[in-house]
């Protein structure tokens, strides 16, 4: 069978589907000072599955932690229009479960084009393999 670390190199999704892969990728992102990208990506996935009674509070928590401060790594990588859309949704009593979808897609794009290829070339990954 293919060892997990070779699977990680197939696609970002293969990497994010494996606990150990996530751990190593997160360590790499911590070194680079951008672990928030990964945490935000998982927060968006979790948000969709969150029960309705927790959703409004969680939307505020995600917004405050990653988006409201324009100098944060996540906020800097999300388009202005997407941030405005999220700001409008956050104020609603029953936020749409898909309200972070566009932002998640944008952050995934950053990881696919930037941090994920760098990870595969990093000492951390190469030493692991």
């Amino acid at each position: 069978p293919t060892p997990p670390y070779l699977k990680w190199a197939e696609s970002l999704h293969s990497l994010l589907d494996d606990q150990e892969g996530i751990q190593l990728f997160r360590n790499f992102l911590c070194q680079e000072g951008c672990a928030d990208l990964l945490d935000f990506w998982f927060a968006c996935s979790g948000f969709r599955k969150t029960s309705q009674e927790k959703r409004a509070k969680l939307a505020k928590a995600i917004y405050r932690k990653y988006i409201v401060d324009g100098s944060g790594i996540v906020s800097r990588q999300i388009k202005g229009a997407t941030k405005s859309f999220i700001r409008d949704c956050v104020g609603k009593p029953h936020p749409d479960p898909a309200m972070f979808e566009q932002a998640q897609t944008e952050i995934q794009g950053v990881m696919e084009e930037n941090t994920y290829p760098l990870f595969l070339k990093s000492d951390l990954y190469l030493e692991y393999t």
Binding site: L16, D17, D18, Q19, I22, D39, F42, A43, C44, S45, G46, F47, K49, T50, K54, K57, L58, K60, A61, I62, R64, K65
Partner: peptide, 20 residues
């Protein structure tokens, strides 16, 4: 604020793959 952080952590963990 603490409970908001807890909620966020719980949300992130819920989205991670389970042990295989």
């Amino acid at each position: 604020i603490d409970s908001e952080d807890d909620l966020l952590q719980e949300c992130i963990s819920s989205a991670m793959p389970k042990k295989k």
